[in-house]
Design a protein around this nucleic acid. Sequence first.
DNA 1: GCATAACTGCACTGGTGAGTGCACTTTAAC
DNA 2: GTTAAAGTGCACTCACCAGTGCAGTTATGC
Lengths: 216, 216
Amino acid sequence: MSGARTERTRGRIDKRQAILDAAFTVFARDGYHAAGVDAIAAGAGVAKHTVYNHFGDKERLFREVVGALADQALARNLAAVELLREDGELTAMLTRTGRALAECYCDERSVALRRLLHAQITTMPDLLGIVRDRAADRVDDALAARLARLALAGRLDLGGRPALAAEQFGALLTGPLEARSRLGTRKVPRAEVREVVDTAAGTFLRAFGTEPAQSA
Amino acid sequence: MSGARTERTRGRIDKRQAILDAAFTVFARDGYHAAGVDAIAAGAGVAKHTVYNHFGDKERLFREVVGALADQALARNLAAVELLREDGELTAMLTRTGRALAECYCDERSVALRRLLHAQITTMPDLLGIVRDRAADRVDDALAARLARLALAGRLDLGGRPALAAEQFGALLTGPLEARSRLGTRKVPRAEVREVVDTAAGTFLRAFGTEPAQSA
DNA sequence: GCATAACTGCACTGGTGAGTGCACTTTAAC
DNA sequence: GTTAAAGTGCACTCACCAGTGCAGTTATGC
């Protein structure tokens, strides 16, 4: 329905990108098996042969799509984590970071990536490794590092396990969002995201904070 | 690999159950689309016609499998939640309940249910409703009710929102377990489950407890 | 014992989709 | 301008799979 990404037959170098975009759309909508290469080619405004010229076969195309989604997710998530600085009021900062992470998590592409991953994890077990290496692990590490710095500054008490604390902060966001978004089928209203993030930040600070609580 | 559930052609009434069992195995292994009705029939030691006699078509069979999985998950999870009583030491109790819930979450059938749900949620959006009505929502409610009772007894301070606290306790378990089990593809070692559960209970009690902390 | 309902085995249809072959056109490089 | 690479359109093969038809078998109710 969203039509071809290329304006008719114009440039040549961006066919590859057009195919990746269309492939994402179709895979996300129909899932790996139900997705047809014909539909992808049509969506990209490209001949089926061109798809095979660029990617070899359907599975390799799928892997490329997943890899691209992982890269994009990494960029967005790292930007969110970098909102956690050492200065500024803790509650506000944690809330801002949490909100940014929540937006990443709810992003259409992230939702699709999780869905495709879950669906194909048994038939293509290596996919998870790709996504973890290129995105998930790096975000976790970055978050843990930021929290560790706050602990070093005496503003958090993580019991010497920043990675565990990062894991929990993430869980306090993603768990509720997964449920409330109905596995990504429902757009969580702004107010509800706010509630999830504020509650997560509150719980996290009550558990790990060293400063007098900033009431909700 | 686990062979037919029925010992050759014996009883008749349990063919239905044999089909459901085999269908679970095949759907869980291959996913909805890649699963073949022939494979299911073979796995159940039954003619393909018998499958269609009992369930009409592949999609209805799939729904029955999902429903059955939800019912089983509900039973296991409720039993876990009911470990939360009003007497007894809080940390120990929360840890025991947490461990039981973690085991439910890591159970092969729960893993498969989540996987199938994620994979088919776009093509069969009503599936989520079935699972929520028959399992997820009820578990959440039961957990919230137990926590509310503990709050009423003055042993927790949930800020008057037991449902939010229940949501967070669940998230502190499922989030880390989801990641550490690699979406269910890896068996999480006992020691690691213990770490996740203890950390979750610790964080929860530091955030919501009213009694002096029981150190880890 | 017999009628009926459930089950079996096998062959079959119809549809769909991955991947290829081929003749032709367009673009980019020199 | 000519050449080579990339792209197009279409028809085609091959395989797989949901669902059906049918003739024959087995169990169950009475």
